[in-house]
Write a protein that binds this DNA or RNA. Structure first.
Length: 301
RNA sequence: GCCGCGGUAGCUCAUGUAGUAGAGCGCAGCUCUGAAAAAGCUGAGGUAGCCAGUGCAAGUCUGGCCCGCGGCA
């Protein structure tokens, strides 16, 4: 049974922000009759384009892209939703006999798909969350401990967000089930990484380009469309910085500096996921990627 | 030149009455069960400007010197 599943091949292109995943994926998809599924937790939102480095039509080179603009920034989106949509998109591509490429830099999203995490079937309960958020981490920890001592023992007790989610689950299911993995695809993981200094340069160049292209206007538009500053700030990184700048909480230069810092730190956080994954084939050049993929795919392709 | 204020971690600064120093940011590393570009954790960094004095004990008191900032002339 699991043998059959393993025939479904998925090529994953990952790496830190600004490392060049998009450009590479287009080239590979064109050569290998592929279609692209984005694995990016912010590119899913409509109206967040410049600051998410979302690919534009012109750059797609006729390669179909999925999982872009699938959610309104006004509503809360989640990994579970993402996973469901991604599974659908990938299976759709496979059904057309094309090769699916999962491309992105959101590790949580990537691994949810690659490893087939089975999430507890419980949507976020915003009402409950609002109530719980008023409590201290200590109180929350004690609540969880009563509901599910096992989960309490391993959870980060200072992390309110995770405590709340755990309680949310344990309250209904009695406990937080262990994370099950049910991989749907046979994955080839290809990683792009750059020396630290070089990546820093790339991040900077790209951010300055975004500013020229109207990134600030983009954030202003999000606000005008009805999003609260708080909500925009929660998109994180440079979205947070620009939101604060527009509220007058930060000077222009500060905003740039802080944004770059945030992006650099983000790239490090991404790498803490990727570094420990031995399955990743770290790339030296594009030719190597092609070779890896051709070896991976069933003969005849 | 005179008066005032200051010189403590890479940066900005805390450290009543003297008892060998802390925070935020930065840096390094990490965690990851429906917010994940989120949220959280851990760690490394200081002979307290320099020299002398008083004290059992000085970042903390006294004197001198050096450096920075503000004011007066």
């Amino acid at each position: 049974m699991s043998k059959k599943i393993s025939f479904k091949k998925l090529i994953v292109i990952l790496g830190p922000t600004a490392s060049g995943k998009t450009a590479l994926s287009i080239k590979l998809a064109q050569k290998l009759e592929g279609e692209i599924v984005s694995a990016d937790s912010r590119q899913v939102y409509q109206g967040m384009n410049i600051g998410t480095a979302k690919i534009i039509k012109k750059e797609m080179g006729r390669i179909p892209h999925y999982l872009l603009d699938v959610a309104s920034p006004k509503r809360r989106f989640s990994v579970a939703q993402y996973q469901k949509l991604a599974f659908g998109a990938i299976n759709g591509i496979l059904a057309k006999n094309k090769i699916p490429f999962l491309v992105g830099g959101s590790p949580f999203y990537i691994y949810a798909v690659v490893e087939g995490w089975v999430f507890p079937q419980l949507k976020a309960d915003q009402k409950l969350r609002k109530i719980l958020e008023k409590k201290s981490v200590k109180e929350l920890f004690n609540i969880l401990k009563k509901l599910d001592p096992k989960r309490a023992a391993q959870i980060e007790r200072e992390n309110k967000r995770r405590l709340v989610r755990a309680i949310e689950i344990a309250k209904i299911l009695g406990k937080v089930p262990l994370l099950k993995k049910s991989p749907q695809f046979d994955c080839l993981l290809i990683g792009i990484r750059k020396p630290k200094g070089e990546l820093k340069e790339l991040i900077k160049k790209r951010f300055l380009k975004w500013l020229k292209r109207g990134f600030i206007e983009e954030v202003r538009k999000l606000k005008k469309s009805g999003l609260s500053w708080k909500k925009i700030e929660e998109f994180g990184l440079h979205y947070r910085c620009v939101a604060q700048y527009l509220q007058g909480k930060m000077k222009y230069n500060e905003m740039i500096e802080k944004s770059l810092k945030e992006l650099e730190n983000f790239s490090k956080r991404q790498m803490t996921w990727f570094k420990k994954d031995k399955r990743i084939n770290w790339l030296k050049n594009q030719r190597e990627a092609e070779k890896l993929i051709r070896e991976f795919l069933p003969t005849g392709r």
